[in-house]
Design a protein around this nucleic acid. Structure first.
Lengths: 164, 164
DNA sequence: ATTTTACGTCAGTCATGTTGACATATATTT
DNA sequence: AAATATATGTCAACATGACTGACGTAAAAT
């Protein structure tokens, strides 16, 4: 406690608090993805497939470019994952009605089942954490995480999450 | 609003809230790691190197197995990253004093500089989000993320984060 | 008619994870 | 003292998911 860095130095306390909060995010994300990863193994899918299934499930009919914009990966990266999901019957593509260049993405029956399965374990995990933390804490969690999203696209994302 | 799934069904609202919260975690994590990733490129390092630098910086003198336990990767995976950090002079190993089998890990001067550089951008990001969200929200954020950590090792991690 | 956009694809590379087998030094147990 | 267990390192092969760069095709926009 007589350490120069600790003691009563408020700047140190602040830095320490920030570092702790950064680690919390790492550990929470690590454990939050562990269960789905296990399930995906049974299908020979990976986390990338999960993300596609998740976002297509949340935005049925979204286009490939919209998906790319969310995932922030190249179309070549997406393509491997997406085409395996299509080939194996978890996702379906339909030509856009207004713009026939677009490929609109939908979950198949099978895809929806897997989406449910994956979503279930994550929702249960979050639900438990929410229940234990209480309503005010949940509001704080959402507020802080929203603030962590890059402000250049925060509004777009938050609009998307809190559906139009 | 007359949709069967929405309307006033409280179970649906709960599910929707949970799904939103899951996405928030994804987006926050994505944007939270973007800046450090850019910096790491200049050093020809990746996110894996960042994690090692971060945790060694936070736990100077930690052993290889302790690090493995935190990262949850195989020693072979760690080795590639760790040995490049050692070769290039960012991390130093010292034989354990009590147990001479152990290799205790320390940041070098260079390592500490890089750690600062990476930590700085993340702390600034978190600090801004905290400032905008307010103290109560921060408490909630920490409470919820703590709850998301797998309970089999939550105590150990939280003890570690809130240093002994 | 030309250009731009949305999407697909081939080819090669890199970072980071995995499994499995084996080696070496040190500590612990018998 | 000998046998066993532990901490670490290392070799080899492989999978996933990211990247860049180049090129192609259909449809929309100019």
């Amino acid at each position: 406690m007589t350490d120069v860095k600790s003691g009563n130095n408020p700047l140190f306390l602040r830095e320490e608090e920030l570092r702790q909060s950064i680690e919390l995010l790492f550990f929470a994300y690590r454990d939050f993805t562990a269960e789905p990863d296990q399930i995906l193994k049974d299908y020979n899918f990976g986390r990338a497939h999960h993300r596609v299934i998740h976002f297509v499930g949340r935005n049925e009919g979204m286009t490939v470019s919209e998906l790319l914009d969310i995932l922030r990966i190249t179309k070549q990266s997406l393509n491997r994952v997406l085409s395996s999901l299509i080939t194996r019957g978890f996702i379906e593509q339909r030509t856009g009605i207004e713009d026939r260049r677009q490929r609109c993405l939908y979950l198949t029956e099978e895809g929806r089942k897997l989406e449910q399965k994956l979503s279930r374990v994550q929702r249960d995990l979050v639900a438990r954490a929410f229940r234990e933390a209480g309503g005010d804490a949940v509001a704080g969690y959402r507020k802080v995480l929203s603030g962590l999203i890059n402000d250049t696209n925060r509004d777009k994302i938050l609009d998307g999450i809190l559906k139009p």
